[in-house]
Amino acid sequence: MKSGIIKVLILCAAIVSTTQAQPFGKTVRKTPGIVSYTLRDSFGKDVPGTLDKIKAMGITDLELSNLFGKTAAEMRALLNERGIKCSSYGIDYKLINEQPDSVLQRAKTLGAQYVRVAWIPHQGKATPELIQQTATDFNKFGKLAKEQGLTFCYHNHGYEFQPYEGGTLFDLLAKQTNPEYVSFEMDIAWTYLPGQNPVTLLNKYPKRFRLMHLKDVRKGVAGNDEGKLAAENSVALGTGQLDMPAILKAAQKAAVDHLYIEDESPAAEQQVPQSLSYLKQL
């Protein structure tokens, strides 16, 4: 009798273990995360309720670009209650110079591994001089981050791909930043819209890209390098212009650690489940 019970328990444990080990999909192996900006309006009204929505979608990986009036400790508690992890914490550029220690402390309180900047303040076209100063700032902050066990990433927005000496300003930024201190987050839409190929860029810098924003662009929308896209032109993954299978396969071969869905559409709450379904069947 006892041996029979033991066999049943072993079988149940094996079933649970197998279920937990099941990948999300064949190409995207683990459930992708989401950027808080996707549900910015909802977060602005109800943080706990929005986190509940995210959990209900089956997502437990979050990149926070805003604390929505909460302290880092308060946000961490809300995340912990729902089994959601903040893996990346997005901040404004100026804070890496003005409040580096506070930024890193908030990131650690949130439980984040990555700290991310998504915009280099500038007027008009970006210049080599701007990129040189940016590289200096990034190296300095990235070194501090590494000393505290964190990884600093910069998220592209398009203006970095202006031509420069046979390459682009992005190439200059990659060259002038220390790979030990500065990594990158690829926004695939803001790589594609300025005329770049995300696959080519991933292959060129396979170890530099650690994070990725998954975003698709409505068919027929023209490209630009200004980092501006009308919200309604952000569509569910797989329905727009980008070659998602090729990009995701390249990301799988590169050092990309986290994939985050970023949907800027007013219909994001309806489109995110559609994007998840698409990614799962790839």
Score class of each variant (00 low, 15 high):
Met1Ala: 13
Ser3Met: 14
Gly4Ala: 13
Val8Asn: 08
Leu9Trp: 05
Ile10Ser: 12
Ile10Gln: 11
Val16Lys: 10
Ser17Pro: 14
Ala21Ser: 15
Gln22Trp: 15
Pro23Thr: 12
Lys26Tyr: 11
Thr27Arg: 15
Thr27His: 09
Arg29Asp: 07
Thr31Ala: 13
Thr31Leu: 10
Gly33Glu: 14
Gly33Ile: 14
Gly33His: 10
Ser36Ala: 09
Tyr37Pro: 00
Tyr37Asn: 01
Thr38Ile: 05
Thr38Leu: 04
Leu39Tyr: 15
Leu39Gly: 02
Leu39Lys: 04
Arg40Trp: 06
Asp41Thr: 14
Asp41Ala: 10
Phe43Ala: 00
Gly49Thr: 06
Asp52Asn: 11
Ile54Gly: 03
Ile54Ala: 06
Ile54Pro: 03
Ile54Trp: 07
Ala56Asn: 09
Ala56Gln: 12
Gly58Asp: 06
Thr60Ser: 15
Glu63Phe: 03
Gly69Leu: 04
Lys70Ala: 00
Thr71Leu: 11
Ala72Gln: 00
Met75Ile: 01
Ala77His: 09
Leu79Trp: 01
Arg82Leu: 03
Arg82Ile: 02
Arg82Gly: 01
Cys86Met: 10
Cys86Ser: 14
Tyr89Gln: 02
Ile91His: 03
Tyr93Gly: 03
Tyr93Cys: 04
Leu95Tyr: 14
Glu98Asp: 15
Asp101Arg: 07
Val103Met: 10
Val103Lys: 03
Gln113Lys: 14
Tyr114Cys: 02
Tyr114Pro: 00
Arg116Lys: 11
Val117Ala: 01
Ala118Leu: 09
Ala118Arg: 02
Pro121Lys: 08
Gly124Thr: 07
Gly124Met: 05
Ala126Thr: 13
Ile131Thr: 08
Ala135His: 04
Thr136Glu: 13
Asp137Gln: 07
Asp137Val: 06
Asp137Lys: 03
Asn139Arg: 11
Leu144Pro: 03
Ala145Leu: 13
Leu150Gln: 13
Thr151Ile: 05
Thr151Lys: 00
Phe152Thr: 01
His155Val: 02
His155Asp: 00
Asn156Ile: 00
Phe161Val: 06
Gly166Cys: 04
Leu169Ala: 05
Pro179Gly: 04
Met186Pro: 04
Asp187Cys: 05
Asp187Val: 02
Ile188His: 07
Ala189His: 09
Ala189Asn: 10
Leu193Ser: 10
Leu193Ile: 11
Asn197Met: 11
Pro198His: 07
Thr200Gly: 07
Leu201Ala: 03
Asn203Lys: 09
Lys204Asp: 06
Lys207Ser: 12
Lys207Tyr: 07
Arg208Gln: 08
Phe209Trp: 00
Leu211Gln: 00
His213Asn: 05
Asp216Ser: 08
Arg218Asp: 07
Lys219Gln: 12
Ala222Arg: 05
Asp225Met: 11
Glu226Phe: 05
Leu229Ala: 02
Ala230Trp: 11
Ala231Tyr: 10
Val235Lys: 14
Ala236Lys: 03
Leu237Gly: 06
Gly238Ile: 10
Gln241Lys: 14
Ala246Pro: 10
Ala250Tyr: 04
Ala251Met: 13
Asp257Ser: 13
His258Glu: 15
Tyr260His: 12
Ile261Leu: 14
Ile261Trp: 01
Ser265Arg: 08
Ala268Trp: 03
Gln270Gly: 13
Gln271Ser: 09
Pro273Gln: 09
Leu276Lys: 06
Leu279Trp: 15
